[in-house]
Design a protein around this nucleic acid. Structure first.
Lengths: 99, 99
DNA sequence: TTTATAGGCAACCATTAGGTTGCATATGCC
DNA sequence: GGCATATGCAACCTAATGGTTGCCTATAAA
């Protein structure tokens, strides 16, 4: 999942979808210096990573952000942060104890 | 930076450093199925991404997590989450208004 | 029923990434 | 000094990535 977010183009796509709306491939690709196919591939990666969901409407394929996935990434980073805090707390306690 | 976190091996390394401690390359590589050089390369990527910091002690190179970088990643995800929440709030308000 | 629009599929390409091996260097310890 | 340990540097290899182009299918709109 982090690998999926790791590509600048995909990070851009995610930003464009951050408002929770659903957009077509062509729409999402507007302004990007790459072909529609390239955009489609990126969306595929995001889809496989569970970061977006796809729905078909007529001849259009619309993509929307999968909020839950973003949440998971946040949780992981929170865990690392928490572990760090805990270690820092222990270290501080140890120092004060020995003081 | 997300690209740096995106590799499983590097995610592992970060986890090993999550307690805030500093470790040598060899130590960090213990248990991993790859060569020391590969580990060193990964640490280099993390270093360039600002996720870890390096300090030399004698013949050892010790790496420690750069807390601030983790924080930045969290912030970004928070922003996307907040944007989402805001959009959801507006949508809800709109629906209730039209109701 | 044409014609234009939105995608899907597949083959192909160049670059990058993750790994490896071999060799050189620097520091610790006898 | 002499040997072991901890890295650093560089060349090389293979597979995955990010992109492209060409062509085919499906749905809108004239």
């Amino acid at each position: 999942m982090f690998a999926a977010i790791g590509d600048p183009t995909r990070l851009d796509l995610i930003t464009r979808l951050a408002d929770g709306g659903a957009r077509s491939i062509t729409t999402l690709g507007e302004g990007l210096p790459i072909s529609r196919q390239a955009v489609a591939k990126h969306l595929d990666v995001l889809l496989n990573a569970g970061l977006v969901q796809r729905s078909h409407t007529g001849r259009e394929a619309r993509f929307a952000l999968q909020r839950q996935a973003i949440e998971e990434a946040r949780l992981w980073l929170d865990e690392v942060g928490a572990q760090w805090d805990e270690a820092l707390r222990r270290m501080k306690a140890f120092v004060e104890d020995g003081d």
